[in-house]
Nucleic acid binder design. Structure first.
Lengths: 343, 343
DNA sequence: CTGTTAGCGCTTTCAA
DNA sequence: TTGAAAGCGCTAACAG
């Protein structure tokens, strides 16, 4: 705070009123070219930087938005932060990234506090805060715009950015079919997430289009966690209708399947193909043999932030996913299914 | 901004002056128990939240600090953010996390702008911004306290928190040597991080002490990301001087090496030992076969932030690293090195 | 196109 | 232990 100069200093140096300086600062029209230049020169000379605090207090917008997240995967959050950050850069806004604990009984209050204390103009919610009831309720009661990235529920409630889960699941299923698989186990996602239903639908649609029968025995329940994947893998691999490929609705469950496959001495993908959704790019790194649907996390964050900053009314944007094939998922060799490999 | 209540509303409801409310807000002494309770009740009733902007403008401290970083590894940044965040929580401060590009010619100006615009009370610098001359110069010229996490240069300049990178790399290298390895590939870190040089030094020192030759061909460049690890692994494993162990300067790169090893059908650690620095515990969980130097990143960030918030004068704290051995890294079996395993 | 005058919501003197 | 008044640096009406 050594020698901060203020708008008054600038106006004095430039020989104009403070209001004129303010106009220049905010890019208003109706400032003569000559005046504008004089003011800008003065600002430069004094290294003038407008106080955000003062602008907030005087005006009605802060130029700040908040990103609220509950940190699950570093990679996921990194992508989200970068996406939001880039959009803010482009709009000359500041980003306040605030972690919360969606399990905390006080989350709603925390968010309310954050918003009123900092005067942010809007809020970006990333999963799983997107579906955290206390937070949504707090935000709705505050008359502040917010956008959600991949909301699982209540799509109609706010603007949101998401991907086409049904198509993604369809793509992956079709890919597996093209590899020669005929019995493909599917592990559902958590029932509270809209995406789970969508993915199941996509799976069925692909089977249907390929003329393959839908077998209920090849669908296992799941809750998006590692243990669900383990349970489902046991169900499939020890059951009567043994699939040659297992498609999990997210990467944690796919990890569970891989773990079981490994324990049983099965090689992936020679003995069993495992596919999953990939939130983070991490899964791909960790398990190169995993073929995944890559979710465009960063792009979604960017788009969501853009939507918020542009003040778009209730807009929904669907972004494209990618199917990322890492290892060649070998066509099924039924003989191999029973052999006990080394590895 | 629907119905924000202000300090005046509170004072009216509580039947006291605004100054008294302010006193309660700031935890001043000299407020009678009775008055304090009345005020607190009024605040609660009105869901009062003090405007940060107003407090900044009126007072001389903002209750905000900035964390400035240049995002190289998501894991690393996640840990840094969490550490800073926790320290802020404890001190009731707000954290502004701001990415910058240390290569940008304007980075100094950007930081200067950030500081004066937001009125932050202090700044935490994480590597490699810790050693970014334009930023350091800008900060020094502003009379604002700042603390550095793992600075590579000018230790005496500011308070800092760091670990002994050379010793850590030395420890790991010595460990690998003790396991019987004689050819140990080393993957350097990003050149903008001073720690990279330290680690290379530690690697060389350990070799030297053990009487092993330093072979330039066993040092690969790296940029702290997954792809660097992949590239380096290819370089080593397909090159003429094939090492029996690869030591990566961070965990993202170690992951890349593991991925390649897997693709090539090599078992770790039977065919190839892989070691790395580790910002989180995640890498260790995912790859139990990985031996790592655990960097107390989060702890360093926490300590640095604490130092800043407590206004400690020129303090340096060195935190201890740990060598975490996960799987028994089998002594080298040269025969295995050329065999192409199934797996 | 430009200037004047009130505040925004708080903290800080200075009194009581 | 409490209160009254004067700003902090800016923007928002209103004038000119």
């Amino acid at each position: 705070m050594s020698d901060r100069s203020n708008i008054k200093d600038v106006s004095a140096l430039a020989g104009v009123s403070v209001k004129t300086v303010s106009r220049v600062l905010n890019g208003h029209r109706y400032v003569s070219q000559d005046t504008r230049e004089r003011v800008e020169k003065a600002m430069q000379e004094l290294e003038f930087r407008p106080s955000v605090a003062a602008r907030i207090l005087a005006g009605n917008k802060s130029g700040q938005i908040a990103l609220i997240y509950d940190n699950h995967s570093p990679y996921y959050m990194n992508q989200v932060q970068m996406g939001c950050w880039e959009a803010c850069q482009a709009s000359n806004s500041r980003l306040l990234a605030q972690p919360v604990d969606v399990g905390d009984a006080m989350v709603g209050e925390q968010v309310r506090g954050l918003v009123t204390e900092t005067h942010v103009d809007g809020v970006v919610l990333s999963s799983p805060v997107t579906d955290c009831a206390p937070v949504l309720k707090a935000l709705e009661g505050m008359d502040i715009p917010f956008v959600r990235i991949s909301p699982g529920t209540n799509h109609a409630m706010t603007s949101s950015v998401f991907m086409d889960d049904a198509q993604a699941a369809d793509d992956m299923t079709s890919y597996l079919i093209a590899q020669g698989h005929r019995k493909i186990g599917f592990i559902r996602g958590h029932s509270s997430h809209m995406a789970s239903e969508e993915r199941l639908f996509g799976y069925r649609r692909a089977l249907d289009r390929a003329g393959l029968p839908f077998e209920p025995a090849l669908v296992a329940p799941g809750e998006f966690d590692f243990d669900s994947g383990v349970a489902a893998a046991h169900l499939f691999l020890n059951g009567p209708t043994r699939p040659s490929a297992i498609f999990a609705s997210n990467d944690d469950m796919a990890a569970g399947v891989l773990s079981v496959a490994h324990d049983m001495g099965l090689s992936v993908p020679q003995d069993l193909s495992v596919a999953g959704f990939d939130d983070t790019t991490l899964a791909r790194m960790v398990w190169p043999q995993l073929t995944t649907i890559h979710q465009p996390t960063r792009e979604m964050a960017f788009a969501a932030t853009q939507l918020l900053l542009q003040g778009a009314q209730l807009t929904h944007r669907r972004l494209q996913h990618d199917l990322i094939e890492r290892a060649s998922v070998a066509p099924v060799n039924p003989d191999l299914l029973s052999s006990q490999d080394l590895s």
